[in-house]
Each structure stands twice: as structure tokens, then as C-alpha cells.
Simulated scan of single mutants.
Amino acid sequence: MGVGPQRALERLSRMLAYMLGRNPAEFGLVPDAAGFVPIRELLKALHEEEGFRHVREADLRALPLCHPGAAIEIEENRIRLRGGPAAAAQDGEGPAAPPRLLYAAIRRRAWPFVHEHGLAPAGQAPALLCAEREFALRLGRRVDPEPVVLTVDVRKAEGCGVRFLPRGGGLFQASAVPPSCLSGPPLPAEAQEAAERKAPGRRPSRILPGGYLPDPARVFPAASPGAANERRRGKRPPHGRWKREKPPWKE
């Protein structure tokens, strides 16, 4: 950022104070217990705001040096409001109980995996869920230009033991949401075929275009019941399956 106009520094400082202290949920940010959010996530949210799309990580790190009034602290790859949660004066936190439906946006290429294993399975970070579908789509576009938006049946998930933790502003976090509680668009053709092959008790049979099912009696004539009956009756089966015996007068 360099020296820069003092007014621009003050404007950025006020914006960061609002995002980190006043209403992080408005920007899809969830601070940890110490009030930190990943710098990478903060920049994604900041770049959606007019007038701040030019800001980079180096600008954030230089801000306290160029503008001593900036109330931010940076620790490794995390950033928070100076003073942590005690300094934050967040706006209304929103409802504690989730609505009947919640929405989550994921990378399109991750949909086959989520379809099979569920959302945020064991060992993964909790999933961020939104009460509004459009907001979930907005957050999803930070990681994929064409994300897949999933609908979570909250009551069904709660019946499976899933807990939804409120994070303010209509945001919730949850882990290990089973696939049976999710609905989304159809899987890509390749992923759908793979899922069918893995389904227990199902062996999909598919004839490719231009293919056909051969007649076993024509491919294996000796094994067909008709050929056996003809041999027992002493008749000559069609297509010359055996040679006629030589007549006695030719011996």
C-alpha cells in the first residue's frame, strides 16, 4: 500500500473494524474463540465490497505501520480486532434455533463426494450453513464460479444427532451431516454411474449404442436344448453340426 492517502487508510481501518468487530456474519465470517479469522477469508469478503477490491495481504500487514490508529492485530495468517472478542460489539446475533431448511454451497467437483459421504464428515472442518439460499450462493462463489447449493433438512438431521451451532446473522455451523439429509442437483453422468455401481444389490446392465445381446443358442449350439433333442432323435441338426455316417454300400 505504501504511504497512500491518509483518508484511504482511515477508510480501510473503519471497514476492517466493522467486518471484524461489529458484524462479521454479514460478510460470512466466523471468528474463532480468540476473535481471529483467516486473512484469506477476510480478503475474499473484502474484495466483494466496492472500493476495496485492490487490497492485498501485504496492505493489511502494512496498515498498522502506516496508520497507527488501525485497530487490528495480525498473527501469522490470522487477523482480528485489537483486543479480541472483548473489544467486539457485535450487532444482533440472530436466532439461536435454525429454520426448517438451511443451505450450503460447495465446489461443483466436490458434489459427488458429499453425495456419498455427507457434508463435513469426521475429520473435516464444520460446514457453514445459511438461512438464506442467496447468501449461501454468494459465499459459494468465493471458492467456485458455479458452486452447487445444497438444501439441508434440519429436522431430519437433528433426528440423526446433528447439532447446529448459531454463529449470528443467520449463519450456523454443523459437522457430519448425513447424505440422507441433503438434497441438490442431479449428479454428473459419470458420478451417477459410479454411485449405481457401488449401490448394494444393483448391477446395472447397459447396452452401448450399436451393441446387441447375442443369442446363446447361436453362439454355443452344442449347449442349446434343441441340439440335444435332435441328437437323441437321430436327426441332422441344422448348419451341419455333425457329419452324416458313411452308407454301407460305400464301404
Rank of each mutant, 00 (worst) to 15 (best):
V55H: 02
G161N: 01
F113T: 12
E134K: 04
P214M: 08
L46V: 00
P209S: 04
P112C: 11
I79F: 02
A131T: 11
Q6T: 14
H117R: 14
R218I: 08
V162H: 02
V3C: 09
K246G: 10
P99L: 05
R56T: 12
R141D: 13
P204K: 03
L42Y: 04
R202Y: 03
P188S: 04
R40S: 09
P5H: 14
E75R: 13
Y18P: 09
G140T: 09
P238S: 15
Y18T: 14
A86Q: 07
F135I: 03
P121Q: 06
A89T: 12
P247A: 09
A127F: 07
P214N: 12
A70L: 01
I72N: 03
E57D: 07
W242E: 15
E26W: 11
F172T: 00
R78L: 15
V3Y: 14
C66I: 06
K235M: 14
V149T: 05
P24I: 05
R163P: 07
A131P: 01
G170D: 03
N23V: 09
P248L: 13
M15P: 06
Q124A: 10
W242C: 10
P147W: 00
G211Q: 13
K250Y: 12
E196F: 10
A176P: 11
R61L: 03
H239L: 15
P98S: 08
F220N: 05
G140Q: 10
Y103A: 02
A195L: 01
P237F: 08
P247T: 11
D144C: 01
L182Q: 09
E251L: 14
E48G: 15
C181P: 02
G4N: 12
P31K: 02
A70R: 06
A70G: 00
A125E: 05
A125K: 04
R244M: 13
G234P: 07
L63T: 06
Q90V: 13
R78F: 14
R53S: 05
H67R: 12
R100F: 04
Q124N: 13
P216E: 03
A62C: 08
R78N: 12
G4L: 15
C66L: 14
A71E: 11
H54L: 10
G159V: 08
F164L: 06
E73F: 07
L187E: 01
E57Y: 08
E93V: 13
I39C: 00
A127W: 12
F220S: 05
I39H: 00
R231G: 11
I39V: 07
A120H: 08
L102Q: 03
G168W: 02
G210D: 06
A71D: 08
R202N: 02
L20R: 04
V114Y: 01
G169S: 01
E146P: 00
R155T: 11
R53M: 04
R40C: 05
M1F: 09
A227L: 11
P209Q: 00
P214C: 06
E132S: 00
P24M: 06
